[in-house]
């Protein structure tokens, strides 16, 4: 079809030869920008927390920290990318409870949470709030539980998809309260508020940021928060624990993870810089805007925390028979 001359072929191949680039010199860590992978879509809570943290971590570690979105379902592609990255401490990831949920929920993961990754530090703690439709004849947590028990199988609850923290929080709540209700998944809790206002959805566990616009003018009712202690936001709403379900705690936490083979002294440097960044008042103020609180930890305490979360959700998932085949 194409008439081809040998001289042309030579020219083509000459053009296809790649060229070289300057080689980076080895110096003490960190001597080049660090990439903080955010495995969820831009614009959400993960993105905000991650970008705020990246900015301040850059100051405390003395190197630019670039926040990079690598999105994909359940944060798996982003986490997998870091699990396989060079173990030099220049590629780290911030993950949410999905990292503790997915090993039980999904039949297979491309990485092993505990073998391929290590915790550098915890990042924050952010409770959820139990909200109910204004069409239900209930005003308080107690009335709600009583109503739900009197109407088994009639209520619907929404979530941001199967196996997400808001979903599992509701499952845990249902299991412990002895209620039966139907799970209706949405692409995000935000989408479900219209249906909650009209009464098609009866209740949900939502992040503070997601619920505030709707509870501010009572278009949906806040009934209880999922932390053990009340915080600054929803200070007049009881915790589920004090309202009667002892020890009920669900947290939308984040942790920073690095590839498992990163040497201990590098992890130590990263951890020290993270602890310093998380203690900054600016960080505290920024996190507070979406109802989160900075929490730092040692790598060991972070690992122990991750294990306990894994055990907690494993039980909920197995009891509700949610695991994928």
């Amino acid at each position: 079809m194409t008439s081809f001359r040998f001289s042309d072929a030579l020219l083509w191949s000459a053009l296809l030869i790649p060229f070289a680039a300057p080689q980076a010199l080895a110096q003490a860590y960190p001597n080049k920008p660090i990439r903080l992978v955010l495995p969820y879509a831009p614009g959400g809570a993960t993105d905000f927390i991650g970008r705020t943290l990246a900015q301040h971590l850059g100051d405390t570690i003395g190197q630019t920290v670039i926040a990079e979105n690598r999105t994909g379902s359940g944060g798996i592609p982003g986490t997998d990318y870091v699990a396989r990255a060079a173990p030099d401490g220049y590629t780290i990831v911030m993950m949410d409870p999905a990292i503790a949920i997915n090993p039980t929920l999904l039949p297979s993961l491309p990485f092993d949470t505990f073998k391929d990754l290590q915790v550098v530090s915890r990042v924050n703690s952010a409770p959820l709030v139990l909200v109910a439709s204004p069409t239900l004849p209930v005003k308080t947590y107690d009335e709600f539980v009583a109503y739900a028990k009197a109407n088994p199988g009639k209520l619907n609850f929404s979530s941001a998809g199967i196996g997400t923290s808001p979903h599992l929080a509701s499952e845990l709540f249902i299991q412990r309260a002895g209620i039966s209700a139907v799970h209706v998944p949405y692409r995000g809790i935000g989408q479900s508020y219209t249906d909650m206002m009209s009464g098609k959805i009866s209740f949900a566990f939502s992040s503070f940021a997601g619920a505030l616009p709707f509870t501010a003018d009572n278009r949906v009712r806040p009934l209880a928060v999922s932390s053990l202690k009340r915080g600054a936001i929803y200070a007049d709403v009881p915790t589920v624990d004090e309202a009667g379900m002892k020890g009920f705690e669900v947290d939308l936490w984040y942790v920073i993870l690095a590839p498992a083979a990163v040497p201990a002294d590098t992890v130590g440097k990263l951890n020290a810089a993270l602890v310093k960044a998380l203690a900054l008042p600016e960080v505290k103020a920024a996190f507070a805007k979406i109802g989160a609180e900075p929490v730092s930890s040692t790598p060991q305490a972070g690992t122990a925390f991750l294990k306990s979360e894994y055990e907690k959700w494993r039980k909920v998932i197995l009891d509700a028979n949610l695991q994928q085949k």
Binding site: A41, P42, G44, A45, G188, A209, P213, K289
Partner: peptide, 19 residues
């Protein structure tokens, strides 16, 4: 999705979008 992000931006400025 763009609107979702703008809601996020308003929240961070301490404004609850709504009536």
């Amino acid at each position: 999705p763009t609107m979702a992000m703008m809601i996020g931006a308003m929240m961070i400025h301490g404004i609850s979008p709504g009536p």
